[in-house]
């Protein structure tokens, strides 16, 4: 583990911002082990936006937080999470601090609760840089520049103001500025636009995309909204019950979803263009990995399930333009 830290600067130039392979997490709750993730693998290349899509309980937040070493309490973690050349699993406290201060940062869902309400915005914005040891004056200069970048008027004055003086959309821009302040190689956006209203959401998404493109950083965009992900991201990873069920280019997943769950996600969203169709919700409720049946976790809700689905967990295999974990991929018309 020590060698990864010392070699990291040399390795960083070549390393992908995020490389998760075979990540499994099990937590102990009241003496019982409850699995959260099962052999999740995904990667984010430099300059790439990857969408991580799934319903609540699918493990998408747990997956994204693992990139910062923010594991749930009493967790047993196996597999590998490499951020910018640094292995997170088994990393020391000092290595994790270094990782969070210099390599990766996260934008959380609700800006109102992300920012300490009793401190000034300048304190929030410079906190990451100051933790790294950057001087106050330089950190302030960086923060003011970023505020300008994210479209806050009179940045110098905004530094001295308090969070409650800003709207949710403006505050999320400030949170984004805070996340970018450290010049991260990887940005994790965990439902970063979900708490905002639709027009604000569009603005913030556009801002994220512009800033990401300018800085060339990798981004993992976690959302439950597959259409939003398809519009923003280069690639998409769909999770269900703690497993990756489909992954591929955003356009391919949107045009030709192969997994019945991905099909269901798209079918349950209203379309503004194209022919009018009845919304078809996915029957049943989303499951966590701990309560999933043997075999394919989706089979109880799947319209095309056959007895063979119960025998084993399907592995990811290429099917047309995507990779999919289903024994009958692309067969949505069978229902």
């Amino acid at each position: 583990m020590m060698s990864t830290a010392t070699n990291s600067s040399a390795a960083a130039a070549a390393a992908a911002p995020l490389e998760i392979s075979g990540l499994s997490i099990t937590v102990q709750v009241d003496g019982e082990s409850r699995p959260l993730l099962d052999k999740v693998s995904l990667s984010v290349a430099k300059g790439e936006i990857v969408g991580l899509v799934g319903e609540s309980g699918s493990g998408k937040s747990v997956t994204s937080r693992s990139a910062l070493g923010l594991f749930p309490g009493h967790a047993i973690t196996t597999g590998s999470v490499v951020v910018d050349g640094v292995e997170v699993i088994g990393a020391s406290a000092a290595q994790l601090l270094e990782l969070r201060r210099t390599r990766a940062s996260m934008i959380f869902q609700d800006p109102r609760s992300s920012v300490n309400p009793v401190r000034r915005l300048g304190d929030f914005l410079t906190e990451g840089l100051r933790a790294r040891g950057v001087g106050r004056a330089e950190a302030n200069r960086t923060a003011i520049g970023l505020l300008e970048e994210v479209g806050i008027r009179d940045p110098a004055r905004a530094m001295r103001r308090f969070p409650h003086e800003f709207s949710g959309g403006m505050l999320q821009r400030i949170v984004i500025a805070g996340a970018l302040s450290i010049g991260p190689r990887l940005v994790l956006a965990d439902e970063a636009t979900t708490a905002l209203d639709v027009t604000t959401q569009a603005e913030v998404v556009a801002l994220l995309k512009r800033l990401q493109a300018e800085s060339g950083t990798g981004m993992l965009f976690v959302t439950h909204d597959l259409e939003l992900a398809a519009a923003l991201c280069d690639r998409i990873v769909v999770m269900y019950a703690g497993r990756v069920v489909e992954t591929g280019a955003a356009s391919a997943i949107f045009a030709e979803p192969q997994h019945p769950y991905t099909v269901g996600l798209l079918g349950s969203n209203p379309r503004l263009t194209g022919e009018r169709a009845t919304l078809t919700p996915i029957v049943g409720r989303p499951l966590a990995l701990a309560e999933a049946p043997a075999g394919c976790a989706f089979r109880d809700r799947c319209p095309i399930a056959v007895p063979a689905c119960a025998t084993e967990v399907p592995a990811l295999r290429p099917s047309r333009a995507t990779e999919v974990a289903c024994i009958m991929p692309g067969d949505e018309k069978a229902a």
Binding site: L97, E98, F108, V115, G128
Partner: peptide, 13 residues
């Protein structure tokens, strides 16, 4: 609270 989680995620000591 979430602002503490955010601070933790930023590597604040």
């Amino acid at each position: 609270s979430e602002h503490v989680e955010v601070a933790r995620s930023r590597g604040v000591a």
